[in-house]
Amino acid sequence: MAARGGAAPGPAARAASASGRPGAWALMGSELSVLFRRLRTWAMLLALAAIPLLIATAVRLTSHPVPPARGPAFLDRISQNGLFVGMTAMLVSVPLFLPLTVGVVAGDTIAGEANLGTLRYLLVAPAGRVRLLLIKYAAAAVFCLTATVTVAAVGVLAGVALFPVGPVTLLSGDTIDVGESLLRSLLIAAYLAVSLLGLAAIGLAISTFTDIPVGAMAATVVLSVMSQVADNLPQLEWLHPWLFSHYWLDFADLLRQPISWTTFGGNALLQGGYILAAGAIAYGRFTSKDILS
């Protein structure tokens, strides 16, 4: 190819540099609207909402009190204080339901577009490969938060509707009022959303390797289950602090007075590490990938 110097920038490039970056955020908005206009997303959020509803209804319909040592933590407290519905529901959905929905969304990010064929049109638009990857991940992160907040919020609503509500006695023995306990519920939802960010990054990375979204989704969910299984094997104790699911159930620190942020920080750091590692893999793969779908 003959070398040619100093070609003038095209009109589009000139227009863009003149007016800043029109539409730098437009694609993010579009991404979220595509995500939340899908029936599948709403079905998953409904399924998540059904968990606190199921718990609340089951407790309400049972006449005899639950013995404290049986069932998930907090379950025995629900009939006295409805604010525990949300916390119980979050605890219950951590091992499978939340990772399942996050696996579906994160596994679909790139593979879903490839499967539809829309990936080639996004890239020739041009969306930019790195920009598209970042936006896909940001949207998946938004979904993580939406999912956990859904469980928390529906839990609070169901609790208020079906049970008496009052000040909550914390694990540390202190008592906090209703407003404070609602804040703590939100905090737990945020903690869980952060906990899922590593998994979302792993799902994104897997998604760049295939054109079959179901495959990427399944692989992501299987990894989340395997991580939890490994976390329960004493033989793999050395590995435990490095597993992305290691802190998933450790939000008890947020129910102390004063709040202990140690677990939150450790968890955030671990998730950040996974985001960097999986992000690097996704970047390496996606920026060099032949789009043949």
Partner: peptide, 13 residues
């Protein structure tokens, strides 16, 4: 079409 147009960051909103 709106979706694909937003993907092009030079396309004026």
């Amino acid at each position: 079409l709106r979706r694909l147009d937003t993907a092009d960051r030079h396309a004026p909103r």
